[in-house]
Design a protein around this nucleic acid. Structure first.
Length: 272
DNA sequence: ACATTGACCTGGGAGC
DNA sequence: TGCTCCCAGGTCAATG
């Protein structure tokens, strides 16, 4: 599920149940995630009050007085709140039980996700310290993108999916934002004009914001964090629509691969 | 410094 | 039904 809107939706879903509550029990059933879940993470988390939960890019940060739990959902991870204990299924790897009896359950079939602990400032953590600006912040501007892209030969789609350039933009929203901005996904990043950089940043913001307002995109079944039915489905204009007709000019959409990821675009409205 | 590719995993769907 | 192959929301590490 997780690009920025899905992580943000998850955050908003779990936050009200967990902030200012104490972790009273930790169960790790599978330590083999992207990086090993530290064997002593139980000890680190035990009796910690979560003072704040926030998002940085696609990372979720659970802050306490003694340190921060860093979670990443990878490709297939999800979080849900259980109000009553349910027997864990095959891919339910981690449970955090809180003093209000809520259980935060981490599920991740592909195990590309991460669950780590740091005693220090999480923003200085190895995985977070080189991240680019938040796409919805004021620091992500056309001027920034234009300067950053200068001299770069990589395709613009790969460029905006680079978390050192801007965080949170994954395959779906990169594809959608480029269509909205009428920019060809294979255009070298350094060839962007200042005007195109401006249009692209605006459309990245617009696309992400619209997706957040709709509760993110679900391509497969997904249990929302409060256990209620899944997310609203965003109406994607190009992603997953290769061969179908462009909503603007009605010609068939082209599907290609860029860096082992699929890209769909309109060869008529997205020119290099 | 930059660009490209492989690697990590499981499950679902298409095609035979 | 069952097998094989390809694809999937991410991103780090190794290589040129």
């Amino acid at each position: 599920m997780p690009e920025l809107p899905e992580v943000e939706t998850t955050l908003r879903g779990i936050k009200p149940y967990l902030e200012h509550h104490k972790i009273i029990q930790v169960t790790v059933r599978h330590h083999g995630l992207r990086w090993p879940v530290p064997l002593d993470i139980n000890k680190s988390l035990q009796d910690q009050v979560i003072t704040k939960i926030e998002r940085r890019g696609k990372y979720l940060l659970f802050k306490s007085l003694k340190g921060t739990l860093i979670l990443h959902l990878g490709m297939s991870g999800s979080l849900q709140i259980l109000t009553d204990f349910l027997p864990p299924k095959k891919h339910d790897h981690i449970d955090l039980v809180f003093d209000n009896h809520m259980i935060l359950r981490f599920t991740d079939p592909r195990r590309f996700g991460a669950c780590l602990w740091t005693k220090n400032d999480p923003f200085q953590h190895e995985l977070l310290k080189s991240l680019g600006p938040e796409p919805l912040s004021h620091s992500f501007t056309g001027v920034y993108l234009f300067k950053k892209a200068k001299g770069r030969k990589v395709a613009i789609k790969n460029f905006i999916m680079n978390s050192q350039v801007v965080v949170g933009v994954g395959n779906i929203y990169a594809t959608e934002a480029l269509f909205a901005a009428k920019i060809h996904p294979e255009m070298p990043a350094g060839d962007l004009t200042p005007k195109q950089a401006e249009t692209l940043t605006k459309n990245i913001k617009k696309t992400l914001q619209a997706a957040i307002e709709k509760g993110g995109t679900t391509l497969k079944d997904f249990t929302q964090s409060d256990g209620k039915p899944g997310y609203f489905k965003l109406k994607l204009k190009v992603y997953g629509r290769g061969g179908q007709l462009c909503v603007r000019c009605k010609i068939p959409l082209t599907e290609i691969r860029q860096g082992q990821r699929s890209t769909v675009y309109c060869s008529s409205c997205q020119k290099i």
